[in-house]
Structure formats: structure tokens, C-alpha cells
Amino acid sequence: MTALALKSYIAVVSTRFRTLLQYRIAAIAGIVTQVFWGLMKLMVFSAFYEVAQNQPPLSFESIVAYVWLGQCLFALFPYNVDPDMRAMFNSGSVAYDMLRPLSLYAYWFSRTLAFRTAPTVLRLVPGLFFAFVVLRLVGLDEWVMPLPPSFVAAFSFFISILLTVALSASIMMLVSISMFWLIDSRGMVNLMAGVVWVLGGMIIPLPLFPDWVQPFLSWQPFRGLCDIPFRIYSGDIAGFEIVGELVFQLAWVAILVLAGVWLMRRAQVKLTVQGG
């Protein structure tokens, strides 16, 4: 793809992003819910840590960072589907997007990027304000979001989150394109949300799962959504290990994008042969 072609897709992302920034009320409502759930989770975890017999594999401070990052970045994860996209793929009217001189996959990938990031940006500011400032003001120092231990951790976290965005979008694309073959896609999307929350580490941080599932957990792509960036942030993943984890994320992005492009091509063949 040439730089000139890339410009078209950047315009798609930024236009969609600006449009979605208008939905502020929904974002405020969302962050209130997420803050509430964050407090609940921390209550449960602090009880658990008090009675724990031996040292859990993640420090309580890391848990606090893990929980607040999860709550603030909630909208980034592929738990729901862009309603526009659902309508287009369900009805087959996505065929009309082929009238534009764009790759159909790249076009919808761009829109997905905006759909994942715009609501996140809206929730981030009040969310972080609560986690960093409000909790300190009310004296809940134990639960205040910690800062990354080093510059390297902060910078690697930033890179890792960018990869999370790409990973999330590529997962969403696979789900959305498969809606094209399904008569009712709601079941699929609900299933997807469950898988994302559990295997990503949003419900329980992955290191707290029993040892016997760890080999499976460490290879599945959803780990790249929460577990990797959050533990890089807290310094739980550090040093040379970081590089390995970033490569892991990148590899899954590549695999899922290729799968999506392939699936989209199948859908396009069906669309152009059968006619929408």
C-alpha cells in the first residue's frame, strides 16, 4: 500500500473518530459503571489478598493497576460490534462499499479502529482522574492507581497498547465478517464478549488462574488485549521479556489480519457472484 493510499484510510479513521466523539453522554454513563465495578473488584481482591496463605503471583499494587487500566480502557476491547457494520454485513449491503476505490477489509478495519478508540478516549480522562486523584482525596491510598516503575515500562506500555488496539480491531473484523454467513449474529457476539473478558484477563488477572491452565492461557491471542500491556505497566513483565511479549502481540495481529483478509475475500466472492 502506498503512502497516498494510506492517506485515504487515515481520513476514514479520523472522520469516523470525530463523529463518534459526539456520543459523550453514553461515555459518561459508561465510565460511571466501570468505576463502580472497579471498586467492587478491588474489594474482592483485597479480601482475597488478606486471607491468602502464600504470596499470590501478582503484587496487590499490580492488581490495582490491572483493575484500573481494565476499567479505563474498557471500550478498547472487542466486546461489542459496530451497529453500522452489523447492519452492512447482515444485509449484504456491504457490496455497495465496493463502489469506492478502497480495499473492503482496510476500509472497515479503519472504521473499526475509530469505533474502538473514540469511546475509549472519552472515558479515559474521567476514569484516570478518579483512579489517580479522587481515590487519593478520599483517603483510599491502597487503591490509588500506581505510576509505572520506570520510563521503559511506561514507554513499552504505550507501544503495547497500540498493538492492543490493532489486535482488538482484527478480532472484531473476524467476528463482523462472519456475521455475513450467519442469520442471527447476536449469539456469536455474546459468546465473543464472554471469551474476551475471561481469556483477556478482565474478570480475573491471568496470573491468578491455576497453574494447569497457564500453558493454554499463555498462547491464546486474547492475552494480548489486557494481560500483556497491564503487566508491562506495573513492571510485572520487565526487561528483555517485554520484547518477547510485544512480538507475541504483533504476531497475533498479523495472523488475525491475514485470516480476516482471507475471510473478507470469501465474502466478496459470494457478494459479487450471488449479488448481495
Binding site: L4, K7, S8, A11, V12, T15, R100
Partner: peptide
């Protein structure tokens, strides 16, 4: 007008 702007970018 924003639709038109986006089309300008898409068609270069």
C-alpha cells in the same frame, strides 16, 4: 459537506 470531504480524500 463532510461526506464530500471524505470522498475527496478517498478519491485523492
Amino acid at each position: 459537506v463532510e461526506s464530500f470531504e471524505l470522498l475527496r480524500e478517498i478519491y485523492k
